[in-house]
Design a protein around this nucleic acid. Sequence first.
DNA 1: TCATTATAGTACTATATAGTACTAATGTCA
DNA 2: TGACATTAGTACTATATAGTACTATAATGA
Lengths: 149, 149
Amino acid sequence: MDKLREGGFLISKIKQVSARIFDKKLKEYEITDLNTAQGRIIFSLWQQDHVPIKDLVSRTALSKTSLTSMLDRLVQMDYITRKPDEADKRKTVIALTEKSKQLKKRYEAVSLDMLAVFYEGLTEKQIDDFETTLNHILNNLNTYEEGYK
Amino acid sequence: MDKLREGGFLISKIKQVSARIFDKKLKEYEITDLNTAQGRIIFSLWQQDHVPIKDLVSRTALSKTSLTSMLDRLVQMDYITRKPDEADKRKTVIALTEKSKQLKKRYEAVSLDMLAVFYEGLTEKQIDDFETTLNHILNNLNTYEEGYK
DNA sequence: TCATTATAGTACTATATAGTACTAATGTCA
DNA sequence: TGACATTAGTACTATATAGTACTATAATGA
């Protein structure tokens, strides 16, 4: 592949605009104290709770240093708790609080609303193909980054 | 569309990992004082130079407030210049310096290297379809955000 | 069992990003 | 022509994000 593509540039732009819109929608749905980035962390905890920070690194694709300070804030706002793992004291276990569990339905409503904008005018088949390709690319990148270490 | 998709979540992750890898590649290619985000601005100036900040807003999908401070830094590092537009004094014209023009070839080499990782294992047809869908989505988002104002 | 290495997480620092509120210049219309 | 609205851009502030360097715990192997 030697043609100069612009996929990465497009992804950056989409991410940027999406985050701005999603932030506004969160406010509209009266989720006033969470932003898109924090939502991403909570979202991945809904899928699996009580996980060490290392797992959150791979599940959110954020660096562990980025996560540390974001988790600080989420603890402060009572969305999550931090507890040392008794079995392996190097680890810190992150868990959801009642407050964040109760948020789930409303957050999913925002997501659906957002997805409607995102995928407007595309067929189910196109969306399926698109998400398959996204997963493929993410896998490429993860493999590559893993090899760096 | 009422199935809960994860396109936005995937895009966020891809953007995150891509940026980390791209930053490392820039260093490998000895572009030591530019990062991915700054590169994105210079990249769009290579496509069209001598533009007001407002144009850069749409071309990079960054907010105008984000751009202000990034442009500050790029001026400081002698990659761009700021000049008031004589015809309409509200406007500031951004232009590339010799330094940034000379960077173009090396930057494109990094991009190609990056794209090889990004699209590894996909056919040209798949990539074409994928980028078409990306453009479609970006267009959806821009239209929506425009309607907000 | 102790020295070495690997793993998990954090403190500190720098840049990226956006929102709110502002200034200055321009355009518009009675 | 003067009041008002619009447009372009910036100052200030807060959060997101990552890198480097560090500490603490655990695993390994002579």
